[in-house]
């Protein structure tokens, strides 16, 4: 990148990538509501534009023209910072994902996996700061819950990836995909796959693990006091988070861009899209667990399982049947 001739294409790549990402996130809000509707035997938003596809525009205009309100009892600086963190961290994390060897912002980063984990770790700050700076009991409770949930689920989300790293011998996401040319890691690392996906749901605090914003008990949780585009940023951040976790699962376990007949980027898109649809199906189908059940499930079941998974993977690699 030191060559000035490389800077312009690099910047273009970043800007186009971000624009594409924002568009997909906006579109996803409509796709989710529509799919959720079909899953519940109703049509969903179908008024604005052809079968409702301009709903996104209507929502965007509505959010942008809402009063940009900072409550007088809130801490204004932190209050404004929190939604920005929510968006920035997921966008930075998605930058390391290689859609194909050629498409991606920094897909070849040699610590891509660690970078992703670090960024999703930083994402906790957004909810904690949002809940705390709102100076409101519901928000604070939501923020505390979000912090506990994200910090604890991050532990075994990271640990569940150790198996993949052991098998591929690399933190580089492109290399990890390359090493899945013959066998997707979802087969040898099935437990890791399931646990990583669960951790991903908890990390994006989507249903059924959306305890930080449990409407029935906390109002809206950490973003109770947010409105207008600041709420919109949390919203978009959440949807980019869904895409991030789906894309990450695709890269780590489902063989990334590998697949027969179709061009690589289409395979990547199809796999990611199906995972996103699965996210929505989860939202439609499952109820929210109680908070203590949720934490017990994490620490007492998932954590030992990941540790066993690592031990067994390591043992098999040493014994020989799985090639290292």
């Amino acid at each position: 990148m030191s060559n000035p001739n490389d800077i312009i294409p690099g910047l273009l790549n970043i800007i186009l990538g971000l624009a594409f990402l924002m568009m997909m996130a906006a579109l996803l809000t409509w796709v989710e509501r529509r799919l959720l509707g079909f899953l519940q035997d109703r049509p969903g938003p179908n008024r604005a534009g052809p079968s409702g596809s301009l709903q996104v525009v209507a929502d965007g205009i509505k959010l942008l023209f809402k009063q940009d309100w900072i409550p007088p009892f809130a801490d204004p600086g932190v209050f404004v910072l929190a939604p920005a963190i929510a968006m920035v961290t997921v966008m930075l994390a998605i930058a390391v994902i290689p859609a194909t060897p050629a498409i991606g912002i920094i897909g070849n980063l040699n610590v891509g996996l660690l970078f992703f984990l670090a960024m999703s770790g930083l994402g906790v700050y957004s909810v904690v700061l949002a809940g705390w700076s709102s100076n409101n009991k519901f928000s604070l409770l939501g923020g505390v819950r979000a912090a506990a949930q994200m910090v604890s689920y991050e532990v075994f989300m990271g640990l569940s990836l150790v198996g993949v790293v052991m098998l591929s011998g690399s933190f580089n996401l492109t290399d990890i995909v390359h090493s899945q040319r013959h066998l997707w890691y979802v087969v040898p690392q099935f437990i890791g796959f399931v646990i990583f996906f669960m951790g991903g749901i908890a990390e994006t605090h989507r249903l059924p693990f959306d305890l930080p914003e449990g409407e029935s008990e906390l109002g809206a949780g950490f973003h109770t006091e947010y409105s207008g585009m600041k709420f919109g940023m949390f919203f978009v951040g959440e949807y980019i988070g869904i895409m991030l976790v789906s894309a990450m699962t695709t890269v780590l376990f489902l063989g990334g861009w590998y697949g027969p007949f179709l061009p690589p980027f289409m395979w990547f898109g199809i796999k990611t899209g199906l995972l996103v649809a699965f996210f929505i199906l989860l939202r439609a189908a499952l109820p929210r667990p109680r908070y203590d059940q949720f934490m017990a499930f994490g620490w007492k079941l998932l954590l030992p399982l990941t540790l066993i998974n690592i031990l067994v993977t390591g043992a098999l690699m040493l014994a020989g049947p799985v090639p290292s």
């Binding site: 035997d41 109703r42 989860l282």
Partner: peptide, 20 residues
């Protein structure tokens, strides 16, 4: 939970009950 997921998924292929 898996069973619930499957039955909810099957609803994708059912007619909408909404009257537009």
């Amino acid at each position: 939970s898996v069973r619930t997921l499957w039955y909810t998924f099957l609803h994708l292929f059912q007619r909408n009950v909404t009257v537009p």
